[in-house]
Each structure stands twice: as structure tokens, then as C-alpha cells.
Design a protein around this nucleic acid. Sequence first.
RNA 1: CGGGGCGUAGCUCAGCUUGGCUUAGAGCGCGUGGUUUGGGACCACGAGGUCGCGGGUUCGAAUCCCGCCGCCCCGACCA
Length: 487
Amino acid sequence: MAEESNPREQGSKITLRAKDYAQWYQDVVRCADLAEPAEVVRGCMVIKPHGYAIWEKIQAELDRRFKALGHQNAYFPLFIPESFIRKEAEHVEGFSPELAVVTIGGGKELAERLIVRPTSETIIGHFFSKWISSYRDLPLKINQWANVVRWEMRPRVFLRTTEFLWQEGHTAHASHEEAVEETLQMLNVYESFAREFMAMPVIAGRKTPSEKFAGALTSYTIEAMMQDGRALQAGTSHDLGQNFGKAFDVKYLSKEGKLEYVWQTSWGVSTRLIGGLVMCHSDDNGLVLPPKLAPIHVAVVPIYKSDGERTSVLEACNKLGGALRNRGLSVIVDDRDECKPGAKFFEWERKGVPARVEIGPKDLAKGHVAVKRRDGGDRFFVPRDGAPDRILSLMDEIQDSLRKRALEFRESHTRTCDSFAEFVEIMAGPEGFVRGGWCGDAACEAKVKETTKATIRCIPLNNPKESCPCMVCGKPAEERVIYAKAY
RNA sequence: CGGGGCGUAGCUCAGCUUGGCUUAGAGCGCGUGGUUUGGGACCACGAGGUCGCGGGUUCGAAUCCCGCCGCCCCGACCA
């Protein structure tokens, strides 16, 4: 049905996933009214109310989790003096190509150019050095919700926009051990959030040196699989070592009276998560949302002909709506007179509302309501009395079902491979994840990228040691890593 | 940055090759009135456009020429 060339479908047409995955993604984003390309500003997007509501839900839960672990929110300047960026050699090299620079302010050329922050390690490092003087000031655990700008070559709504929203956590510790612990703890927060709230299973692991954050000692990541088999880096957590501590002179006096550099971490997730959410669960009819992140849980659609029917049907709808709201659900009773029920069904379906309830004269007579879940299956009926509780428990079922479905998809698209020739063949096809050995040589990693465009997404945490051949050179390797093409 | 596409009504586009037959059009959307309402309703009337910008050619330019700007898509980078 998504392919009908009915003129009234213009602007709301969704390309089939199997036909053109990239176009399908854009269509779902547009039809679900999540965001639109800003057009007047290259690479930027307008996050529309329905999309922003999802972001607010993501924010609320992550913020809760961060604070529960002792982090405090703060806010740092949008502009960073150019000299700050230059203080950490690897950092400047990594970010230079994608910086936006302000050269004029108030009509006058600036004495020092200002960088629109691409990330805040440098300016936060500067302030940490002012705030930290004793081991008693540590650990310092700060989080910032902010926008950042990276002049990417090819923007894509949510997945890679010039400006995006994110949170960046920055912490300083007295020991490397404690910093590593923090890095892994926050990676774990991301992993569990993705699994529990987004219903998106991810593989948590370590980046190879060539893929790590510019300026970090070690970077960790969570990698999700999209429905086209590609990987999405959904969040990162970095062990910064003393690199920024040394660059910004962040020192403290230890208990023993010695002056030491702090050990820092940084970690972030962004509005890219929304893109991941879309690509993980949605289908040819539009957006599919896990209930825990859905701005609207239930759409109640009244069906009536006469005015008399309208009154009694709407009364029943509002009563059910109230009962559902009392159970903590967000409900819309779609009492618009100007469109027919069918149009309403399509609209809420496209927007990913997890469940739809229909109430009409027939239902009133039979004492039940009709329920349709967005994630599939036929419409079914539940008695009116038990409907609120049944629909509440349905939310958990949908959440769980989406997670299981995504996990099964990932598992059925993950292959173990020992031969480079076979690997090249896999990457030419419908893709997916490949578990293959890696000897640790950057040359082998580079060869994979050159020939297939795939990369090592991560070396999974708690990876079982396994003697296997390096998938590229055949030399002995100690463990398998995740190879995939990425967004 | 390389390759491709596009800029005409709120949206999607036709018209451009062969300049005048257009007083710039269509569908969708929007407004008003009526009939409708269990999977995208229909009829009637109506509002809405300096044809991306700047030059040029011509009696005459959305259409031809030159220059500029912008956006989207496909490749090399990232959260």
C-alpha cells in the first residue's frame, strides 16, 4: 500500500524498506513528523514536536541515571578560544577538518578566533584546572546537556547533522583505575538504557586505536545493528588518561602532598539515538516506537454516525482515556470531526503510537473495545471493564517483543567467519555483523576498510579468549572482533 | 572535495527542447458551506506565485546566454 501512486499520498508516501533503505528512513522521519531538514541552513534540521518529545524522554531517563550515580549538570560556553583546541595535539588533528569558526564579533574582527564547540573537553579542562586543587575536590563528575557543531561532509537527519543535541559527561579522578571504572560504568549505563528503554540491543566494546576518540587513551562504544545490517555507533565513553589534564594543567595535591595530574573521562550520546530508534524498529507503514519512549502510548479513535452515537461513544472514549491516564499512560482521544476513522488510523500508525483503541456503537453494545498493537498482529477485543489494565500490560509486552525481535534480527545477521574471501562476499551482500579474528595489526584493519568499507566496530567487552586465525592475514589471533559497515 | 539532481503556490511537480496561443497551470493541502464517518470521504465555491538572485539577448523571457547563490542525493569522515 505504501507504493500506491494515489495523488493524495503525495508527501506522506513511504518508500519500501527493501527497495531503498536510505529513502525509507527519510520517509519515516518525515511522515512521523519527527524532524525535517532545515534546508535554509546546510546540514541542519528542525526537530519537530513529536521528535523532540522523544528526545525529552531520552533525556529524562538518562539524566535520572546520571544523577543517581552522583553526576551534576552544568553548562559551559558555546564558544571555545581557538588556542584551547590546539593544546591537545591529537585532539586538534582529529577535529580541525570539521570546525566552525567565528572570526567576526560585533562587526569587528576578533583578536582570537572562536570555535563553535564540537565537544567540550578543552574548555571544561580549562575550568577543571581552576576548580581542582586538592584530592578532596575529586572525583569531579559533571554532565552537560548541549548542542555541538561539526561540519560533517555528508549530513543525514538525526544520524549526522551539522548541529546536534547531546549530553557530554566529563569527570576527573585521582587514579587511572578509578577513571577506567567510571568509563566502563557509563558505558554500562548506555548499554542498559538502550536495551531497557529503546528496546535496542547493543554490543558494548572497545574501539581499536585507529577508531578511538581524538585525544583519548581508549574509547569504548555501544554498537547497534540497523535493519539493513549496518552498525550504528550509538554512544561512546572515553578514558582520556592524563592527556587533557596535562594539556590544561589540571593538577591536584594528593594526600601524600604530591602534585599530580588528574585522570579524566568523557562520555556522550546524542540525538543520533533517535535515528537509531527509527532504523531499529520501524516498518513500511512508518514509525514503530517502544512504549517507554513513545510520547503518546494510546490513540483512542471514536467511531460514530449520528450525533447521538457521537455523544455516547465519546463519553466511553474519554472514560477509557481517563482510566489509562490514571495508570500513567499518555493518551490521545482523537475526537476530531473533520477526518474519518481511517485517516486517523493511518496518522497514528505512521507516528508510531504503540496501541490504538477503537470504540464504536457495536463495541458499546457488546461491552468491549477493539485494540490494535502497532508492532503487528490483528485487531482484537477486550472487555471494557478490564481494558485499562489489559492495555497497561500490553505496553510491557510490546516493549519486550520489540527488544526480542531486534535481538533475534541481530543474531540472525551475525556470522562467524575465518576467511577474508568469504568476508568480502558477505560485505557485498545484505551485510550484517561478522565475528572474525584480528591479530591486532592496524594494517589488517586498514585492508578490511579499503576492500569492503567495513570497519572493526569494536572488541566486545568480556570477549571470550579464543584462538582463531586473523581473518585478514591468517596469523594467530586471540579473540574475535565485530566487523561491519557503519553509518 | 569529487559525481549526480534540483530551484515555478504551503507541499509534490508540469510548462522550458522549438521564446508569443498562460491573464503562469495541475494534484494534494488550506478556508467556507453541505453531505459523510468500523482502514487515507465527496461536491460546490474560494484564498494563495516579484517562476532562487543578478546581468544580458529580444518588440516580447519561467523558457535562450553569462555569472552567482542555495538545497538535496550518491561516495571519502563522525555522536
